[in-house]
Design a binder for these strands. Structure first.
Length: 299
DNA sequence: AGCTCGACCTGCACGC
DNA sequence: TGCGTGCAGGTCGAGC
């Protein structure tokens, strides 16, 4: 499900309720998601206060008062729902399964795998039908070497990320631009939607070899545009609270409205929205995943 | 070494 | 209605 903007949105939502508060208890409905929960997960979280939040790639890091970090990844279908008493206080839904879990009663649906009880009567429920999510508990000093984080590349909003950085990493790369941008060891946090959208904005074909933008000396200036557009599309999406796919009506109307501004993603057969282009959006498959682009204006 | 693919898992939309 | 197929915002390890 979530790419960088959605993860950022979820983190900010968790922050509102969790920051400075203690975890009273944790209930696990099963022993694993994509990976097993760490040993004594619930026990080790009991009584801990959350001191700060941080996002790295598509991971959320919650720093605890004992020098440990609670690490989350939402996989494809993970989401948090925040409740206070019986009433849903804040909806962090981004996957469109809330109605189902609500209908199950008591906020305990079939795919509610973790419940965090927070001081002040808050409950945070983690729901993840496909169970591609991950949770781990890591000592602060070990976080950089954590196997899930060690190989992660540049943050799109960080100083390292630039046209020169892309040029350096794309040199002699045969993989299509689409695959290169999805590679988390190069760029952290981009996923299928925002790669498609950024490439459309930059006027670059997802099929072009990544290395084709690098010259013997320097690089194609369109790498500058690409960097700019990646940052712009991510910023706008964060601003919009991320994208909500296959969703039901949202009661709050606040979170996740960027999907209304997709230029190409999931728009096969529709006209290219670029002014004066007149092309038609195409869907192709690259490394087993859908790519949407306009063959007319993306070269 | 670099790249693509299958596997992980469930739900939903589609066509017959 | 039911069944089969293909698709879904991610990631990792196997295999070429």
């Amino acid at each position: 499900m979530p790419e960088l903007p959605e993860v950022e949105t979820v983190m900010r939502g968790l922050e509102k309720v969790l920051l400075g508060r203690r975890i009273v208890a944790v209930r696990l409905a099963r022993a694993d998601l994509r990976l097993p929960f760490p040993k004594k997960f619930a026990k080790r979280l009991e009584g801990r206060r959350v001191e700060s939040f941080e996002r790295r790639a598509k991971y959320i890091l919650a720093h605890l008062d004992n020098g440990e970090i609670l690490l989350f990844h939402l996989g494809m279908s993970g989401r948090f729902t925040i409740l206070n008493g019986d009433r849903r206080a804040l909806d962090l839904e981004l996957g469109g399964f809330y109605e189902e879990s609500a209908a199950a009663g008591n906020g305990e649906g079939r795919h509610d795998h973790v419940v965090f009880m927070i001081e002040g009567g808050w409950r945070i429920v983690y729901t993840d039908p496909r169970r591609f999510g991950v949770m781990d508990l890591v000592e602060e000093k070990d976080i950089a070497e954590h196997p899930l984080l060690a190989g992660i590349g540049a943050e799109p909003f960080g100083n390292l990320f630039s046209a020169a950085y892309l040029a350096h990493n794309f040199r002699r790369k045969k993989a299509p631009l689409k695959a290169a941008l999805l590679d988390q060891s190069l760029i952290a946090g981009l996923g299928n939607i925002y790669v498609c959208e950024a490439l459309h904005r930059a006027g670059l074909s997802p099929r072009r070899k990544a290395g084709s933008l690098v010259k013997a000396k320097g690089y194609d200036r369109r790498l500058d545009d690409l960097v700019r557009h990646i940052r712009a599309v991510l910023s706008e999406a964060i601003e919009a609270g991320g994208s909500t796919l296959r969703d039901h009506a949202r009661p709050d109307g606040e979170l996740g409205i960027f999907q209304h501004r997709f230029a190409v993603y999931d728009r096969e057969g529709k006209p290219c929205p670029k002014a004066g282009c007149g092309g038609t959006i195409r869907r192709i498959v690259q490394s087993g995943r859908s790519t949407f682009y306009c063959p007319r204006c993306q070269k």
